[in-house]
Design a protein around this nucleic acid. Structure first.
Lengths: 208, 208
DNA sequence: ACCTGAACACCGTTCAAGT
DNA sequence: ACCTGAACACCGTTCAAGT
């Protein structure tokens, strides 16, 4: 049998991605499979391969959406606080770090997939992914530039990446309980300590 | 057929672990399987399950060994430098961070397995693993105590974990090229900047 | 043209049957 | 007692055959 045409390819993509996201809201990727996903949305495994090219690319599509919602959560700040923080870039960086942690905690399986999914063997983080990541860095760079206007672009860029990767490391080990027992509460304090101390010393020393 | 008894269970464990380590020196875990591993060492898949309990526990055994060699590389320092650094805990922390990065770069697939392997669903990082991790933290804590003798134990402990997780984050994103293009060289600089700035501000502020 | 479902080459695990 | 190898329930992917 064949010939259903109930949905366009685009609609099938949306169905599959949303179904997988729904699964990852509660369970890790390991409990899902291309076959199960196909069954969930009422198509055969072959159709999903047709539409996405491969299971790996389906996962990449979910990661694209995850990067977008991460980006949305990070840039979203209550209007009142934005006003307040206009002259307080350090506060903004601290809030940024906490938002990142919050996102990781609230979307742990999406987050795991985003950082642990490896492309088959080839190269190339896709362009759109690198661009989205660059956008996230950019916000950090803006805040750092305000903190240390005398610093040159390369220095700011490196500091932004350092802060970012550090916060990421705390979140990563904390979510996996690979740091200590009571990680949920302490991770926030560690990120605060990390950003506050790093920015303080960095701004006093950067390109003076 | 059956009844070989060419090796004791312990010998089979060693054979399997070494064979997997050899594989991970060049290729990611995904290219290996229990069945391939069994074939490599001349036994059936069932035997490996008998000896290790499951494929997962075999992987855990490799991780135990990885933690040991990581620990060995970190505590190993040239005698001359040890002398030199006796009064320079910051230098020791910097060297520690670089050693960590070096280990991750030189053993990327072992390192990936160590941090990405998840226990089936249950709880419990095994005791021996937590103890080994605690030992690694302890070295960092010792150096921090020298930097800020006035700080209390809890503060030092948190700072040690913060530094550790941060360095880990830089290594992790750097190895996956998820930070930027030229990661190999810059990761070292980022770790240096990270430790130097954090420790500087932290020591001035901790429990004064 | 689109989709299916059987087929292919795998996977970790179990366990009756051999020695 | 120890090990095997077939069997089981999966997996991602391919592709001839249907509509």
């Amino acid at each position: 049998m064949a010939r259903r045409k109930d949905h366009t390819h685009e609609q099938i993509q949306t169905l599959a991605i949303e179904s997988l996201q729904q699964h990852l809201a509660e369970q890790p990727l390991g409990n899902m499979s291309l076959r199960k996903l196909a069954q969930r949305i009422g198509y055969s495994p072959g159709t999903l391969i047709n539409v996405f090219g491969s299971y790996d690319q389906l996962l990449l599509s979910v990661n694209a959406a995850t990067l977008d919602s991460l980006s949305a959560q990070l840039t979203l700040q209550p209007a009142a606080e934005q006003q307040e923080n206009k002259q307080q870039p350090l506060q903004r960086l601290l809030a940024y770090g906490q938002s990142y942690l919050q996102f990781a905690e609230q979307n742990r399986y999406l987050w795991q997939l985003l950082f642990e999914h490896r492309l088959p063997e080839g190269e190339e983080v896709p362009d759109w992914q690198q661009q989205r990541i660059d956008g996230l860095f950019h916000t950090v760079e803006q805040a750092l530039t305000q903190v240390a206007p005398q610093a040159n672009a390369a220095t700011v860029q490196q500091a932004a990446r350092t802060i970012w990767a550090s916060v990421h490391g705390v979140c990563s080990l904390s979510l996996d309980d690979k740091l200590f027992a009571d990680s949920l509460t302490d991770a926030g304090a560690m990120i605060e300590s990390l950003i506050r101390n790093y920015v303080m010393a960095w701004s006093n020393q950067a390109d003076v």
